[in-house]
Design a protein around this nucleic acid. Structure first.
Lengths: 196, 196
DNA sequence: TAAAAATTATAACAATTGGTCTATATAAAC
DNA sequence: GTTTATATAGACCAATTGTTATAATTTTTA
């Protein structure tokens, strides 16, 4: 089972790796093949729909992994504010580790293809929904109303994605760190107002 | 003066228009020429450094216009929370007017080129700094400490950029509207805590 | 009107793009 | 051991990418 799927998954992994650094159109299939080390003939065998399918599955795979990771961290959280801060600082660490080259987000794909590929747009949208839902769920289990929980979840999702962009532009993880602190104090404030 | 610069500026305008819809690598020079209606031979006459220079100047031009627009709106603001909300809802309107195709942000360029072009990365970064500084300035004139003003400005800048991405993915301006409301109440809260 | 400068046209460039094709190998099943 | 899927190799495709070079054309200046 390992050997059979390895070429396929190597292609997917290389795809996401390169796209998060260079974008969708900036990443060629030849480069993906070289980076993955996968045999060239295998690409259209596993992904008959070509690049679009390849990227679509990369979004799906990475997105699910991301959503699960987040959900796992949120699971045993007793302090929502603290745990959100932790997630942001973790992202900052990963970004730093890559020299600020790998953002770990779908923003590029969205911005490049949302007007030309419904398939990719929807794949990205599902991932945002999935992550956002995880946040919402946690806040609700901590006593927030559904409406309030959803609002905060949206703010988290958007500021996360936006902070990553600022970090790439600045070549520094500082924006993520800053937002981490900011959101923490905001969530604490929201908590204290939970009565109304 | 109008006729002489018209081909040049038409090229720049077409460039920004297309890039915000399709990204940097997704937009070809041929398409820019066609869209702009500018003579083909003029491109490398006005922009000897090619695509990079063309895009760089597009960022500069659009960025300055954006920063000025924001600064103008903030100038005669007596209610910071309300004016921030207004800016976000204005962005939402513009996005809706384009059928959610034109984001009016530099995120694509950052994500696609920050690892390969210092020139473009820095150009985008300058624009973020410029906008962020406008927000900071306003909050300071309304009594916020410099530190606090900067923090809130960063949250505004990041969540704006992130919200735009969510809107593109969702094909709806709803995230921008939601964040508009959320930030408004947040700023009001921050204002009430200004004493410490 | 002649000379100079600014602008545009056109063709070609090598390189690369995403994608298709057929032939060959490797493995599994009977 | 022969047949049948599964998988890989690699040449090939037309189209397009950004870029360069040179020629023709305007426009400005003298």
């Amino acid at each position: 089972m390992e050997k059979t799927t390895s070429a396929r998954t190597r292609l997917i992994e290389a795809t996401f790796n390169l796209i998060e650094q260079q974008g969708y159109h900036g990443t060629g299939l030849n480069q993906i093949i070289k980076e993955s080390g996968a045999p060239k003939g295998s690409l259209y065998y596993y992904f008959p729909d070509g690049k679009e399918q390849l990227v679509s599955e990369a979004i799906e795979l990475y997105g699910q992994a991301l959503a699960e990771r987040i959900r796992g961290v949120l699971k045993n959280a007793d302090n929502p504010a603290e745990i959100i801060k932790l997630i942001f600082t973790n992202f900052a660490k990963k970004l730093d580790a890559s020299g600020c080259t790998k953002s770990g987000s779908f923003a590029t794909i969205v911005l490049e293809t949302s007007n030309t590929s419904e398939r990719l747009r929807k794949a990205c949208n599902r991932m945002y929904d999935s992550c956002s839902a995880s946040y919402t769920e946690m806040f609700m289990t901590h006593g927030f109303s559904e409406k309030r929980a959803t609002q905060i979840a949206t703010l988290i999702t958007t500021s996360m994605e936006g902070a990553i962009i600022l970090c790439r532009a600045k070549q520094s993880s500082e924006p993520l760190i800053q937002i981490a602190e900011e959101l923490k104090s905001y969530i604490n404030h929201a908590k204290s107002e939970m009565s109304n």
